[in-house]
Design a protein around this nucleic acid. Structure first.
Length: 353
DNA sequence: AACTGAGTCAACCGCGGGAAA
DNA sequence: ATTTCCCGCGGTTGACTCAGT
């Protein structure tokens, strides 16, 4: 191993490229190819290091101009899976260089995610924001509360919102971290218990049974705007992603019969992901219904089984009165689910550590 | 008109992997 | 088996532009 001598040591200059230098370099490479980058400056009669200039700027197949919405979505998806592997990401965006994507990420996408309340590295909701959400929402509602309700009503409503947000905060945590449902006092539990439903989500996941009539959490009865609408906006559209053929067969060959039968819907679309070291396949049955399969014991030959995320460690009465948790066959789909289950192309599948 | 701060992006720096000697 | 060299990569810097004051 060893580092190449820097520009000074091999007699190269630094600084921006002039049009003349660009022209010399392009002319030479078009005629002879780049060959050895180290020898190129002398051969092309350019006193600068040529590799970066060619690969990031002069290469004829480079696409210029703004990133499209599709490219932006692809970068988001791939970054969620690959992290800062800019060259790997660039391989999936023809005409874009790793440097360009890296810059676009640092100047646009990272900020965008932060503004939306996501941690740009984990693509998960930021816990620091959620820890202050109850206060922010309480403040936002304060005016309306003061104007339209008695103090008694105001107290109950605020308590309700805080209880819901506690539960929401739990659901949005990564599955393997140490976050646990906050210890709710009896008053808060009673408030939760009294709700028509404890909490709303736009989507429901059904593992195992995928019974549309038995979601853990029913449709919303929250009358305040859903603070997570913006989160859903950037999340991947599973309907647009087709599972690669060999991965479908990989799953089908290993599935146990029961699960296969459950998932033979003609319009199934599966998305393979590798989350927390474990392969998962997500099938979408309906716009709001999903089945998650997890391969047993991380072995390529193990059957694919329904995933059974742990139910929240709260009592049934605390969760919801209308749809008590039985913890056996269904699970919820908080936004963190979408952060987990992102597009994974077959070629990338092998890149996952 | 001058200054300032934010945004953008090309270019630089230094590390690690792998091929060659 | 070890050393040297080359290349690719990701992180960072700094020059430049532009909008706001």
């Amino acid at each position: 191993m060893g580092r190449s001598p820097c520009c000074d040591e091999i007699g190269l200059k630094k600084g921006p490229w002039t049009p003349e230098e660009d022209q010399k370099l392009v002319k030479y490479i078009q005629k002879h190819g780049h060959g050895s980058w180290r020898a190129l400056p002398k051969l092309a009669d350019v006193e600068k290091s040529c590799r970066l200039r060619w690969t990031n700027y002069l290469r004829p197949d480079i696409k210029r101009g703004k990133f499209t919405a599709e490219e932006e979505q692809t970068i988001l998806n791939l970054h969620a899976i690959l992290g800062n592997k800019w060259s790997a990401i660039a391989n999936h965006l023809p005409g874009r260089t790793d440097n360009e994507i890296k810059n676009f990420w640092n100047t646009h996408l990272k900020k965008k995610l932060i503004q939306m309340g996501f941690d740009p590295m984990t693509h998960r909701p930021r816990t620091d924001i959620f820890s202050s959400l109850p206060h922010l929402i309480a403040l936002a509602n304060l005016k309306e509360l003061v104007e339209n309700h008695s103090w008694e009503e105001q107290a109950v409503r605020l308590q309700t919102e805080v209880a819901k947000l506690h539960y929401l905060q739990y659901l949005l945590q990564p599955p393997n971290n140490n976050f646990s449902m906050p210890n709710l006092d009896m008053d808060t539990l009673n408030v939760l218990n009294s709700l028509p439903s404890a909490f709303s989500t736009k989507d429901h996941i059904h593992t195992h049974t995928h019974n549309p009539n038995n979601p853990v959490l029913n449709s919303s009865s929250l009358d305040s705007p859903n603070p997570f609408d913006s989160i859903h906006d950037h999340l991947p559209d599973l309907k647009s992603i087709e599972l690669q053929t060999n991965l479908i067969s990989k799953v089908n060959n290993n599935n146990n019969e029961n699960i296969s039968n459950n998932n033979n819907d003609d319009d199934n679309i599966g998305v393979v992901t590798n989350i927390h070291g474990q392969d998962q396949v997500v099938y979408q049955h309906q716009p709001c219904e999903f089945t998650v399969l997890t391969q047993g014991e991380n072995s390529p030959t193990s059957p694919w089984l329904p995933s059974s995320p742990s139910p929240p460690p709260v009592t049934a009465t605390a969760a919801t009165s209308s749809a008590p948790l039985d913890g056996s066959t269904t699970s919820t789909t908080p936004s963190s689910f979408w952060a987990d289950h992102l597009l994974l192309e077959d070629s990338l599948f092998h890149d996952i550590p």
